[in-house]
């Protein structure tokens, strides 16, 4: 297992090397002045320019510049945003938890709904229930998410008026910022209207979570169903049945573990799609997360912000990918073999 871990980490180092090289070269590939792109400053006079050239080591060769770039990233000196002239790292720290919160709840919802539905669909493939679950999964899979989000807003926010259509929390509530995760912050906050605020935050969360969870849930249903059907054909299931175990015992002891193993891996593979969809969802629901911020930055040609957003999101996707791989190996003895 430790050898497996070492090999994975070794591979990951190369991926991060490539990623950092790409992010570094973006500063030069973006149109406009290299110094502006690197620092994020808009007006630069001659004296300041000389200082910045020294700071970014632009008079040195590319290798030196790359090393300087790496040490700046490590120190947390990521430059300023063109739009707000604020340090980028600070902005990202404020925005990232909102995205993570939304994504985590959507993933959780997709597990809670997707796995049982997939199992039911696998066990009753020819019944009405099984067929309607499969039909629903196909429909959800092919639903354009922005259209689906707008439909839900029209129905629940505009027509029925049950749920808010934008933001994370009503303007009536003032919650001090600590972890950035809204529900956690509310529970930690020392305010009188805690339960009301919590309720309000949940109402804000509901629609975006449903919209974002649609895609992973349908993927999960289809995947669990296929994996279960496949596993149920295997000889070891027949052995377990011949041992005299009941259907539930066979499912629990041998079916689930083998069928859910590929699902763990699937989470890692689907995570990048999920982040992309989270960006769309954030735009639709005006959710103050990193996705909406990145899309705004692209519209504003905010090059330093694009570079930083790329670094953060790619790192996140790669790390999650790696974690699910390691989890998969932890549960699957065959993957550990070598």
């Amino acid at each position: 297992m430790s050898r497996y871990l070492l090999r994975r980490l070794y591979l990951m180092a190369f991926v991060f090397l490539a990623l950092s090289l790409f992010a570094f070269s973006l500063g030069y590939l973006f149109p406009g002045d290299v110094i502006q792109n690197l620092s994020g400053l808009r007006q630069i006079d001659d004296e300041q320019r000389q200082q910045l050239i020294n700071y970014y080591q632009l008079d040195q060769n590319y290798l030196q510049q790359y090393l300087a770039f790496l040490s700046r990233i490590a120190q947390g000196n990521w430059g300023l945003s063109f739009a707000s002239q604020q340090p980028l790292l600070q902005e990202i720290k404020l925005l990232l938890p909102a995205t993570l919160e939304l994504t985590a709840y959507a993933l959780l919802l997709s597990f809670i709904l997707g796995i049982p539905l997939g199992i039911v669909a696998a066990f009753k493939p020819h019944s009405l229930i099984g067929k309607s679950i499969s039909a629903l999964a196909i429909a959800g899979y092919s639903l354009p998410i922005f259209w689906w989000g707008l439909l839900l807003i029209m129905l629940f926010s505009l027509a029925l008026g049950w749920l808010p259509s934008a933001g994370r929390l009503g303007v009536l509530y003032e919650i001090p910022h600590s972890s950035g995760f809204m529900l956690v912050d509310i529970l930690q906050a020392d305010v009188k209207y805690r339960s009301e605020a919590f309720h309000n935050a949940l109402r804000h969360l509901l629609l975006p979570t449903i919209v974002l969870a649609t895609f992973p849930t349908t993927v999960m249903i289809r995947f669990v169903r296929d994996a279960m059907l496949n596993v149920w054909e295997q000889n070891y299931i027949k052995t377990a049945q011949a041992k005299g175990l009941s259907r539930g015992q066979v499912l629990y002891r041998h079916g689930l573990r083998n069928a859910l193993l590929p699902v763990i891996r699937q989470i890692g593979l689907q995570f990048s799609t999920l982040i992309t969809l989270a960006m769309l969802t954030e735009v639709i629901f005006s959710w103050p997360g990193i996705g909406r911020w990145l899309i705004d930055s692209i519209y504003q040609r905010n090059y330093p912000a694009i570079q930083a957003g790329l670094l953060v999101i790619s790192t996140m996707v790669i790390t999650i990918n790696m974690l699910t791989e390691i989890l998969h190996a932890l549960f699957n003895p065959l993957a550990r073999r070598g």
């Binding site: 000889n235 070891y236 052995t239 377990a240 193993l261 003895p333």
Partner: peptide
């Protein structure tokens, strides 16, 4: 069965 290693749960 014929293939014992496939008749045992691999996990």
């Amino acid at each position: 069965y014929q293939e014992p290693s496939r008749s045992l749960d691999p996990t």
